[in-house]
Simulated assay, not measured.
Amino acid sequence: MSADSSLRVAVPFHRMATLRPAWAGRLRPLLTLAAAFVAYVVLISVVLVLTILVLALVPGVNVALEVTSGDPTSALDVTLALAMGVMWLPAGIIGVRFGGWRPLGTAWSVAARPRRELLRAYGPWVGAMGVLVVILAAAAGAIVGADGSGQDTTASGLQLLAVTVVVLVLAPLQAVGLELALRGTVMQALGSWLRSPLLPLLAASAVMLIGRELTAAVVLPALALGLAAGILAWKSGGLELSIMLTATITVASHLVSAFGAGSGIGAGAAALNAAAAAPGTSAAALAATASGSGSAALAGGIAAAIALLLVTAMLMARISAREGVRLREPVVRPADEPVPDVVPY
Results as ranks from 00 to 15, higher is better:
Ser257Asp: 12
Leu223Gln: 06
Ala252Asn: 04
Met244Leu: 15
Leu223Ile: 15
Leu255Trp: 05
Thr248Leu: 05
Gly237Ile: 00
Ala228Tyr: 06
Ala216Met: 14
Thr250Gly: 15
Leu255Asn: 09
Gly260Pro: 12
Ala261Lys: 09
Leu239Asp: 02
Gly264Ile: 12
Ser257Met: 10
Ala228His: 03
Val256Pro: 11
Ala228Trp: 03
Ala269Arg: 02
Trp234Glu: 15
Thr250Leu: 15
Leu255Gln: 05
Thr248Ile: 13
Leu214Glu: 11
Leu239Glu: 01
Phe259Gly: 01
Ala229Phe: 08
Ala216Gln: 02
Met244Gln: 12
Gly238Val: 13
Ser263Lys: 03
Ala261Glu: 07
Gly238Asp: 11
Leu239Gly: 01
Ala267Leu: 08
Gly230Ile: 06
Pro221Trp: 13
Ser242Gly: 15
Ile265Leu: 14
Ile231Gly: 00
Val256His: 07
Leu241Pro: 00
Ala233Gly: 06
Lys235Gly: 02
Ala269Cys: 10
Ala216Val: 15
Leu241Gln: 00
Gly268Lys: 04
Ala252Lys: 03
Ser242Cys: 14
Thr215Asn: 10
Gly226Gln: 04
Ala217Asn: 02
Ala216Lys: 00
Val219Tyr: 05
Leu223Gly: 13
Thr248Trp: 05
Phe259Cys: 02
Ala247Leu: 10
Met244Thr: 15
Leu220Phe: 14
Ser257Tyr: 04
Ile231Gln: 01
Ala216Glu: 01
Thr246Gln: 13
Ala252Leu: 10
Thr250Ser: 15
Leu225Cys: 02
Val219Leu: 13
Gly226Met: 11
Ala229Leu: 12
Leu239Ser: 02
Thr246Gly: 09
Ile243Tyr: 01
Leu232Phe: 12
Gly238Ile: 14
Leu214His: 11
Glu240Tyr: 08
Glu240Gly: 06
Gly262Gln: 12
Val256Ala: 07
Glu240Trp: 08
Ser257His: 08
Gly264Arg: 09
Ala269Met: 07
Trp234Asp: 06
Lys235Tyr: 01
Ile265Thr: 15
Thr250Glu: 02
Ala229Tyr: 06
